[in-house]
């Protein structure tokens, strides 16, 4: 925060002129990008539909009430499948993520090349949405719960491994050093010095991802990978709006319950 000499004596300004100019240019640049983006999007939009949207929304909303509660009996199995996709997918993810995380953390990686590969696995898995993973796997394995489970697993590897390896890098190094000083081997140092320190992180990350996966697995059915999403897309395609609202209600409840469970378990761990 400089004092600037002017003819009236020193003046306090928050920033130097150069800095102000840079910030102004930044804003200008941002506005240009947003404006340009907006133009491109609006070119591809049929504004008649947008104007009509409120009426449409009202129309659909009225057709959605009341939810068709009797439909629930056909939803138990998809809900169960959804739950399994999320849970088994998380188990698969953790099984892969733990070795990847140890390979990716600077203080445990056996070699910089191994670290680079591990980091690439993490980025690739994180960048590709679970729906895309599901798309690929449905094509290869055929539609069904298996494709969904593996899709969730592959998508979660990156997320879990990233949080895990950050946890591994943040450990208290002196505890490991103390174990090293006893003459323990590298594997033993890991077992006694590192694993106990990161175990709570591992459990926390697993539960956290499970909660996210419940949400994600509700939509995999849209591409045929099992779970409640199949019913959802079927009901939308047949314009069965009371069924749609029932499914949304079920998804809402599932998500709330899983969030509650996850918060409880994490509270107990930490």
């Amino acid at each position: 925060m400089p004092l600037i000499e002017t003819s009236d004596g020193p003046m306090w300004k928050r920033r130097t002129p150069q800095k102000r100019l840079a910030i102004f240019m930044g804003w200008l640049f941002g506005f240009v990008i947003v404006f340009y983006a907006w133009r491109l999007i609006s070119e591809k939009t049929i504004w008649f539909f947008v104007q009509d949207a409120p009426k449409q929304a009202f129309d659909i909303a009225t057709r959605m009430v009341p939810p068709k509660f009797s439909y629930m009996e056909r939803l138990w199995v998809p809900v169960w499948d959804t739950l399994n996709i999320a849970t088994l997918g998380t188990v698969i993810a953790l099984a892969i993520a733990i070795p990847v995380a140890f390979a990716a953390a600077r203080n445990t990686t056996p070699h910089p090349i191994v670290r680079a590969i591990a980091i690439f696995i993490i980025v690739a898995s994180r960048s590709v949405n679970s729906l895309i993973w599901a798309l690929i796997l449905v094509l290869i394995l055929g539609p069904g719960v298996l494709a969904g489970t593996i899709a969730i697993g592959l998508r979660s590897v990156g997320f879990c491994a990233k949080l895990l390896y950050e946890g591994i890098e943040e450990i208290d190094h002196s505890q490991v050093e103390a174990i090293e000083a006893t003459g323990a081997s590298r594997m033993q140092q890991m077992l006694y010095g590192i694993v106990p320190q990161v175990l709570p992180t591992f459990a926390g990350v697993g539960v956290f991802r499970w909660d996210i996966n419940i949400r994600e697995s509700t939509i995999l059915g849209l591409v045929g990978a099992g779970g409640i999403g199949i019913e959802l897309s079927g009901s939308i395609n047949t314009l069965a709006w009371t069924q749609v609202s029932m499914i949304l209600l079920v998804i809402l409840l599932t998500v709330i319950v899983s969030e509650w469970v996850s918060a409880k378990v994490r509270g107990a761990i930490i």
Partner: peptide, 16 residues
């Protein structure tokens, strides 16, 4: 993605 399904129903296909 569920939000998008509804948005497509309301606003038509496309980036909007």
């Amino acid at each position: 993605i569920i939000l998008a399904i509804f948005a497509v129903k309301l606003f038509g296909f496309g980036p909007f």
